[in-house]
């Protein structure tokens, strides 16, 4: 099917990379490295699920890195306050959802462009956090905080299951929930969607709030990997997330894209850094190669959109 050509090309790129690694870098596929790789990319993966929805509706959220930092610190404070881990998880998700709701409220109901709103919250949230924490890390965490008090293996396996379930939930939700359908309609043509009776404002508000909650979840799951929580975590996270979604074939203008593409996008961009180390290539190349991948993805999108526009314009003349 031609609409899956994008996913296919990212998948091919991943397979090629894996083949190179399999022949040249044997240690790459060791269990430890794969587990590390998964954990390092897990926050990006979880947030990218929400970001895919946001971008599908034609919006963008560049504040996720700052929200991630806030939720991380909140998680640590909860743990230090003696709250059980489950409760900390809940608080992180609620804090993230609240930040997302602020973004979504401005975008959906006050019609402020999402790039402006989330740029503002990105700066405001991070600097508020810096001021509150004075740059200090959250330490003195209880001993059962790291790895949720279980072994690293159990934690990793549990997180993997959770991420896989989330991915499945999003894939199926977009396919089988009515709200999933309205995401594509809204992103393709908001006015037309409104005329078809879709509450596009509520939808936009919801996807921002959901992404906030996912960011909280990701922050919690990530924080427990360490015994201290930096107050500046998540710097540049928004760019990694957006890049992964874009590489996965979701049109930055909204309306088309898949969760599968996003998963592959996260996989491709996330595996390159370590791959370079294993291949003895200078790590300085990482950003350049990632940039190249993003650029080619965007060019591919532009070309295919241009092509479609052209095909459509045959019927576009007035009568």
């Amino acid at each position: 099917m031609k609409e899956h050509s994008r996913e296919a090309s990212v998948a091919v790129a991943i397979v090629l990379l894996m083949l190179v690694l399999a022949t040249l870098a044997h240690g790459y596929f060791s269990r430890e490295n794969l587990a590390d790789l998964f954990l390092a990319n897990m926050p990006v993966m979880i947030i990218a699920l929400g970001m895919t929805l946001i971008i599908l509706t034609g919006q963008i959220d560049i504040s996720v890195g700052s929200v991630f930092a806030i939720c991380s610190v909140v998680t640590g404070l909860c743990a230090r306050g003696g709250l059980p881990a489950v409760f900390g998880l809940l608080v992180a998700c609620v804090a993230g959802a609240a930040c997302g709701a602020v973004n979504g409220g401005f975008v959906a109901y006050l019609r402020v462009p999402s790039i402006v709103v989330t740029l503002a919250t990105m700066v405001a949230l991070r600097d508020t956090l810096r001021w509150k924490t004075q740059g200090s890390w959250v330490g003195n965490l209880p001993s059962n905080f790291q790895w949720f008090g279980v072994t690293q293996q159990v934690y990793t396996a549990g997180t993997l299951v959770m991420v896989v379930l989330l991915i499945l939930l999003f894939v199926l939700g977009l396919r089988f929930l009515r709200v999933g359908r309205t995401v594509f309609a809204t992103g393709s043509n908001e006015t037309a969607a409104q005329i078809a009776g879709i509450n596009t404002k509520r939808l936009v508000f919801t996807v921002f709030t959901l992404t906030g909650a996912l960011t909280g979840l990701a922050a919690m799951l990530n924080s427990v990997r360490f015994n201290q929580i930096p107050s500046n975590s998540g710097l540049g996270l928004e760019m990694k997330v957006i890049a992964a979604v874009a590489v996965g074939g979701t049109a930055i203008t909204g309306g088309t894209g898949t969760i599968l593409g996003t998963v592959l996008g996260v996989g491709l961009l996330g595996s390159i850094g370590t791959a370079l180390t294993f291949l003895n290539v200078s790590a300085y190349w990482e950003k350049a190669i990632q940039g190249g991948i993003i650029l080619s993805a965007i060019i591919l999108n532009a070309l295919s959109t241009h092509h479609k526009k052209h095909a459509n314009s045959i019927n576009a003349l007035p009568g």
Binding site: L177, R178, R181, A185, T191, K308
Partner: peptide, 30 residues
Amino acid sequence: RRQHGVILEMEVATNISMANLEAVSRGGLL
């Protein structure tokens, strides 16, 4: 029609069901 009537990027089928998704759902799922 092109701006508001149909969503050009979407399938004929999804365009037709768009205003009445209840009719093509079972137990809340499409």
